[in-house]
Design a protein around this nucleic acid. Structure first.
Lengths: 342, 342
DNA sequence: TCAAAAAATGGGAACGTTCCCAAGCGCGAT
DNA sequence: ATCGCGCTTGGGAACGTTCCCATTTTTTGA
């Protein structure tokens, strides 16, 4: 005779109300933890009824009524890249507390897919979006009319919240570190996307050279795509330069690791014959032999901070104008850098 | 005077109906692509109205009415582990086509968290769950009453769909490969969780020894937790054995890479002094020097197949009893295995 | 003791769909 | 000419909440 047996459907707030001898409004109040406005005695009766019936709150109905879904979409270029999975973790860990779920989509640098995720976020009325945009523009993002945080510090997204790390400073510091180790001929394997994000590393490289009164030698700079093959190619080019570098800075660790392997396959001993430094500090950077010295980006922190900024924006506590949050990089010394020979 | 200006809210199906001069039922039919039962002419009028008003389908309302959410929850022990992020990719890529979104939660082997995700899946009426259970039991999973696929082949989940790789066979084949290279003293760094999944690798190790008429030497077997520190410790132990092994099999690549590094730090040259073989073929396995030879698990395929099995289950097309799908492992030869010296 | 204020509760509408059933309409068959 | 059938369409209920407002109950203060 309990409400469930009458009809094979799950119990609703109404069944609970009936069982507890109150109205559905009261049950709803209890559910929402609106402690102030319901008598303890009543609340207990309701809680008992809930337990007895095995009632489970229907979030979907709630979403429809309140227009809040407690869902956030994370759109990254590639979730299999350890960099982004760390960011994802930070975001999720932080958003979990206030009760949000995170859907993560990997856009794969594919306009179709990136847009499909945005569309899903709109149709499903997601409360927020965290995105590292590769093909989506500011206009489309704004049109979605969903609180958004941009992962990465970019131009071209006026008025939007952004969070990223200071690639310029990080690069500059990495190069300075090599300089202080005694290196004067420093190569640069410079990764890039189609949609190029500001060229912070390149600017840092040029500024560094200028500050140290070193001449810019174009043969020491090679531009490659952001993938293993790019690192391999970059290294092969630099090894064949007439006067090869004694140290190389790579735009990220994927390039650096691949480049380092390539050098080792060419029988160079790292760091004796060549120093290598990367950027990001992804998981595999600790696994090479020798370990890769790298300028770490605060990936997990970026995720956490992104969550905080996004939450403020969602809750309407953020200022009208976009905020720009830049976190510092940090040098991790492992074994791939040493003073140059001789 | 368009419906949006009257009231600052988004246009609904009703506004569209009004604009197109039809009823909301008809609009709904068009939206659902119920092509058969609406005249082309009418459909065009509706589509026009939709575009004109900038109408966007409200998935939430739809979910409430249909009791289908097109959401799937993936619960893994740790999404930062490259193994699971590959599985996640396979799952997502496959589920994307039929319109599902995937929420991925990392349970972190924490009973609290794993259960919290399960609860979220229930409250939000998710259509399906894909899980590698670490602390959750069959009973809780069954109680959730949501179509589920178990990632990993396990005992203790009767009647549920499962998908995994053949760790027994993979281990056996890896050991056989070492044997055929000439190794007779083969060490085993055996990772394990608290909740231990069947010990397939251990059984394979013992069976292999028996088949080859090798005696089981307990000093060649060391049990460690599934993390870098475990691999390091395992290697230190094996290096100090009176009669050390000429080759070592590790339960997974994380252990193998860490172990290999430890050996290298002890000035052993891999594979000249010691052969190493791992299992999984995660991303960093290709990044060591030399590359790690490993028994690859079909991670991405597991994700894809999991999606297919789950979809069938969701759509009621699956047989009543649980299915068990086991994919083969495959040897990836890199540079960490060679015949023993002398 | 009684009015007024405060606290607690109840009832109904609303959120935006989908689904069921009925009704309208055109057309061929009887 | 009428009936019946199939194809389209429309209307209303239902999904399970939350929110607003009205009503009842309790408490407070004179």
């Amino acid at each position: 005779m309990n409400p469930r047996s009458k009809n094979s459907t799950r119990p609703t707030i109404i069944h609970v109300a009936r069982a507890a001898g109150v109205s559905k409004s009261t049950v709803s109040r209890v559910l929402q933890g609106d402690a102030a406005s319901v008598k303890t005695e009543t609340r207990q009766a309701v809680t008992r009824a809930i337990r007895k019936l095995g009632y489970e709150h229907n979030a979907i109905a709630s979403m429809l009524r309140t227009a809040r879904t407690f869902m956030v979409m994370l759109i990254t270029p590639d979730i299999a890249n350890p960099f982004w999975s760390e960011v994802a973790r930070g975001l999720q860990d932080t958003l979990e507390r206030p009760g949000y779920s995170v859907v993560v989509g990997n856009g794969d640098r594919d306009p179709q897919r990136e847009n499909a995720f945005l569309k899903t976020a709109r149709r499903n009325r997601f409360d927020g979006i965290a995105i590292n945009p590769t093909v989506i523009h500011s206009r489309e993002l704004r049109a979605a009319n969903i609180p958004t945080i941009i992962l990465g510090v970019r131009d071209g997204f006026p008025g939007m919240d952004m969070i990223g790390s200071d690639s310029f400073q990080g690069t500059f510091d990495a190069l300075t570190y090599l300089f202080q180790m005694g290196h004067r001929r420093i190569g640069f394997i410079d990764g890039h996307y189609n949609a190029d994000p500001g060229r912070a590393r390149y600017r840092a490289y040029r500024d560094f050279l200028k500050q140290r009164d070193l001449v810019f030698d174009p043969t020491l700079l090679v531009e490659v795509p952001f993938e293993r093959a790019g690192g391999q190619r970059g290294m092969r080019v630099l090894l064949n330069v007439a006067q090869p570098p004694t140290a190389i800075f790579c735009s990220n660790d994927i390039l650096a690791v691949a480049a380092m392997q390539t050098a080792q396959e060419a029988s160079l001993v790292i760091p004796r014959d060549l120093s290598m430094i990367g950027m990001d500090d992804i998981y595999p950077a600790a696994m090479t032999m020798p370990g890769l010295t790298t300028m770490a980006k605060p990936k997990y922190e970026i995720g956490c901070q992104a969550a905080h900024l996004l939450l403020e924006r969602i809750e309407g506590k953020a200022p009208r104008e976009g905020r720009r949050c830049v976190l510092p990089c940090k040098l991790i010394e492992r074994g791939s850098v040493a003073p140059p020979r001789g």
